[in-house]
Amino acid sequence: MRLNESIVISAPPKLIWGYLAEPSNYLHFMSGVTRWEVEGEQRSGLGARYRMLIRVGSAEVGGLIEIVEWNEERDMAWSSVLGVDQRGRWRLRQLPDGRTRVELRFAYGVAGSGIPGWIAELFAAPQLGGHLRRSLQQLKRQVEHEQLRAEAAARQRERAGV
């Protein structure tokens, strides 16, 4: 099953990327996520691993994931190493007006689980879709708030400089 949600954020890709690259932020903006911990020495970048869980129905599902694509300020993709099969992607594209379109793609399933697996994927989709939408909304709110704060701080510095 593949889910796809997107949102436009009034901030440059650099700011959003900075927010997404920091693993400690995920518990703050990702809806339904109950765990997002760095596994190993590498904190971010290609090859970084995280142990993540997201609440869906009666269970917290997820497992160990690894960053498999890291294209600064554009694309970040991950794939599962252990746990439920999953593949996700953050896709950032700057719009002509300076804002950024953020897309979150998420594909999941359990190989070999047959018809029950297919039904479970179908039944989990609305809940997971809701998590993705809320996550993007929270990301937008937090990044835009960060942007406003940064602009306010810059204005203050300007005034102080004057």
Binding site: S58, V110, G114, A120
Partner: peptide, 23 residues
Amino acid sequence: PDHLREQLPLLWLIASFWFRGEV
């Protein structure tokens, strides 16, 4: 473990929609 993993979706369906389980 492999067999158990393949059974998880069925268990999840029953636990989530029949028993509305919460752990």
